[in-house]
Design a protein around this nucleic acid. Sequence first.
DNA 1: TCTTGACCGGAGGTCGTATA
DNA 2: TATACGACCTCCGGTCAAGA
Length: 284
Amino acid sequence: MEFEQLEAFLAVSQTKNFTKAAELLHIAQSTVTTRIKLLEEKMNKKLFERNNRMVELTPAGINFLPFAQRIQELMYEGEKIVRSEGLFEGSIVFGSLQSLWEYVFPPIISAFRKEQPKIALRTITGHSNDIIQKMMDGFIDIGVVYIPPHHHEIEVVPYFEDTIHLFAHQNFVIKKDSIVTEDFNKLPYIHMNWGSPFTEWYLKSLGDVIYPLQVDNSTLFVKMLLSGEGIGFLPEYIAKGHVQENQLKKLPFTPTHPIPKRPAYIIYPKRKKAKVEQLLHFLL
DNA sequence: TCTTGACCGGAGGTCGTATA
DNA sequence: TATACGACCTCCGGTCAAGA
């Protein structure tokens, strides 16, 4: 399989049009046709369904797409590393979750850059599983995740443990001394999934309910709490700053079962220990 | 003896165009 | 959009000569 064929496949899947894909790649349309044809022959599967009006990915094409994207990303990443050789004494790709980038890492990264100015640092944001997958692909050198991978090539180091509490806007009025689980039906509750232990606890404590409002982005979730849209569970490290600035307050909540703590882990491939050692020590 | 560079020919890829 | 076709280009492998 040629990289050019992969590029043609990605261009057609992106534009849904052979002519536009050719324009994108600055090659002739017939070349795109040939490349796709050769790729399909190699795979022994049709990757696109074509007719006079449109081009669509076949199920085989849909399955192949994420792999093609990963190969292309890896190729570009490899090129970048080779091109940057000699410019820095080293380079580290650091992956973690969006909420941690926003609330935990900026001062750490800033301090690390001051101490190690000759190490090029690149950050990548994603969910725990994305970070682990990209680490397995050789894309990420070190990461911080909430779900530790169980793989013999990956070293897992416990990093910190955070607690989750119920928070609301400073002006939110509660009519009781303490909120209990039975009160949730009457409260403007916003749900954010803080990982599987939290979800399991939520289901055990509050039942399998349909949430009136559920978001999957921590930044949006915090914005909604700050705007007084409702109440919700938030890790302490995110809430801390907003509480200090009198924007949010912790609500007195008595759960039937204790809310599980949220441990974070530093992960890195064992073979890259020497490469990430300085940042690892800095984080710890 | 090995390395390097120049040259040559063949194979395969790409292009532009025409057509279905 | 797919295919065919001729022209052109690029790459690769082989050969040979010069130099270290």
